[in-house]
Each structure stands twice: as structure tokens, then as C-alpha cells.
């Protein structure tokens, strides 16, 4: 199972925000994240890794929890960007760790506003290493 995941890691990106631009830039030929066997999917059941980024309100949180619960085990979570790691830039009252930190277990934090595509790839590679 582990080796299967290692050679074919499916990632689902939740939310919207500036980080998504940088995450999706990794699919281009410059960074080409697919050479590590990483794919981006849109069905939670197929995904191994959930990437949490960007801005959330109550509706967004519900969607995020639904995606997380629909993902099959083993599953990992990467949190990217300042809005998730620290406080939301556009809503200072919103703190992801305080609100959902106990329900969703985050494995890797990628700091930056937004983090560079290399930083995201580095987190995925660390995840693959940890999976071994």
C-alpha cells in the first residue's frame, strides 16, 4: 500500500486563494511535479493528500471537513500559506489552528505568503520520504 502511494500520490487542493496559483504552477513544465509520481485530483475518495490553503468562511469549512471525511486512509494533510499557518490576512479573527486544528491533523506546514512552488514541492518530497 505504502509503495503504491509512493509511486502515485494523489493530491486534492481545497479552498481558494493566492497560494493556489503557486501550487498549480507546479503542474507546468518548469517545476513538473508529476515527475515524482504526483497527480492533482478533484475527487476526495481518490486523494491521498489534502492541501489546505487560502481563505475560509463557515461554508468553506463545512466543505473542507466533508472532503477530509470522504478521503480514504492513509491520508495526509499539508497546510500552506500564512492564512492557514498563522492568522487569515483578510479576517484577523479567523485562526485555522484554533478552529479546526483538533479535527484535522496537519502533517506539514509550508510557510510563505504565498509559498514558492519549490517550497510546496519540497513539502511533498518530505512527505514521500516520511511515507517510506
Amino acid at each position: 500500500m505504502r509503495s503504491l502511494v509512493k509511486n502515485n500520490l494523489n493530491i486534492i487542493v481545497a479552498g481558494f486563494g493566492c497560494c493556489k496559483q503557486e501550487i498549480l504552477a507546479t503542474t507546468g513544465p518548469t517545476y513538473d511535479i508529476s515527475r515524482f509520481g504526483v497527480n492533482f485530483v478533484s475527487v476526495p475518495e481518490e486523494a491521498d493528500v489534502l492541501v489546505i490553503q487560502g481563505f475560509y468562511n463557515e461554508i468553506g469549512e463545512e466543505r473542507l471537513l466533508e472532503i477530509y471525511s470522504r478521503m480514504k486512509k492513509p491520508k495526509w494533510v499539508i497546510a500552506t500559506g500564512k492564512c492557514i499557518v498563522d492568522r487569515c490576512l483578510l479576517n484577523e479573527d479567523y485562526n485555522f489552528t484554533e478552529r479546526l486544528g483538533k479535527i484535522i491533523n496537519v502533517d506539514f506546514y509550508v510557510p510563505g505568503c504565498p509559498p514558492r512552488p519549490e517550497a510546496f514541492i519540497y513539502a511533498v518530497l518530505r512527505l514521500l520520504e516520511a511515507g517510506q
Binding site: 481563505f55 475560509y56 468562511n57 468553506g60 466543505r63 487569515c88 483578510l90 479576517n91 484577523e92 479573527d93
Partner: peptide, 9 residues
Amino acid sequence: IARVSSKEL
């Protein structure tokens, strides 16, 4: 789903 900023922002 997109309206995330607070009124007092």
C-alpha cells in the same frame, strides 16, 4: 463561499 473578509476589515 467566497465572502470571507470581515465587515470591520
